[in-house]
Design a protein around this nucleic acid. Structure first.
Lengths: 141, 141
DNA sequence: CGCTAATCGACAATCGTTGTCGTTAGGATG
DNA sequence: CATCCTAACGACAACGATTGTCGATTAGCG
């Protein structure tokens, strides 16, 4: 995801307004690799802007997703997670214990469908989820 | 997933009671490859047993999952889907248009993490989701 | 046949997310 | 710099999927 200044320009180009709320969210997400939930972004935004609403965070996240600046992940952990890393192709490690998500580069080119399925289904994206226990959770049984 | 008679025995062995409701659900799910939602199972069950409750369907699905007789999938389509195919290792095709899910055999052995991640994360399962358009939806633009 | 714990179904509650709506303010224009 | 139009705001209620509660009922076991 780009930085606040670039996103400001991009939003204006697209006819979207740039509000203090949105800029706060831009700043929080740029370079964030923690895969926060929307709720978590909301909490952090509220620390610097107490009146911001959860709805506004959802709205901005969706706008950023529509612009291709971030990816919204549903990893089956109950709530959706935000991944601003769209620059590098990657897949995800999900800790079944603590829910933490980490990016990993994985070569998915080796995954081939059998010809009969390849004919009957136009694959657009391939998503790989590695589930297991992260270092911290493996240490603490 | 096993058939109704085998599941009846299995449930009794485990101290779970076998009710007409549960047997109806056993019969509906055995051999079903449609990946129904819980709601869909409920509708079908209600056709032959109008008083059955949605709660009972959820409960039975969870019991079957705990016994390893089926898999509950969260494919990001809003509601959870039930996959009674636990006999053959497989992955899933998900149509982004109609939401239909299909099983596909895929060799995931080729997916290897970089050593630094392999050390820091104990992978237990690997899940692959192919998203795209199924035959029916590709034909109808 | 009767005891008892498990299951049943009706209902309400929960959680994450989205819609509604009156108000505010971005930003293009003059 | 003032004006205007409308997108975005925040408060609140609603939504869909799933789960908890709780008497009434019923299977399993002796």
């Amino acid at each position: 995801m780009r930085n606040t200044a670039e996103l400001t320009d991009l939003f204006r180009e697209r006819g979207l307004r740039v509000t203090p709320q949105r800029q706060a969210i831009f700043g929080l997400l740029h370079g964030d690799a923690s895969h926060p939930t929307v709720e978590a972004i909301y909490e952090r935004a509220r620390a610097q802007m107490p009146t911001i609403s959860l709805k506004t965070v959802y709205q901005t996240v969706h706008d950023l997703e529509a612009l291709g600046e971030l990816q919204v992940l549903d990893l089956g952990t109950g709530s959706v997670r935000v991944d601003p890393n769209v620059e590098h192709s990657h897949q995800h490690l999900v800790c079944t214990e603590c829910g933490r998500v980490r990016d990993v580069p994985v070569e998915t080119g080796g995954l081939r469908l059998a010809p009969k399925h390849r004919r009957a289904f136009h694959v657009e994206t391939v998503e790989v989820i590695f589930r297991g226990r992260c270092e911290a959770c493996a240490d603490a049984p």
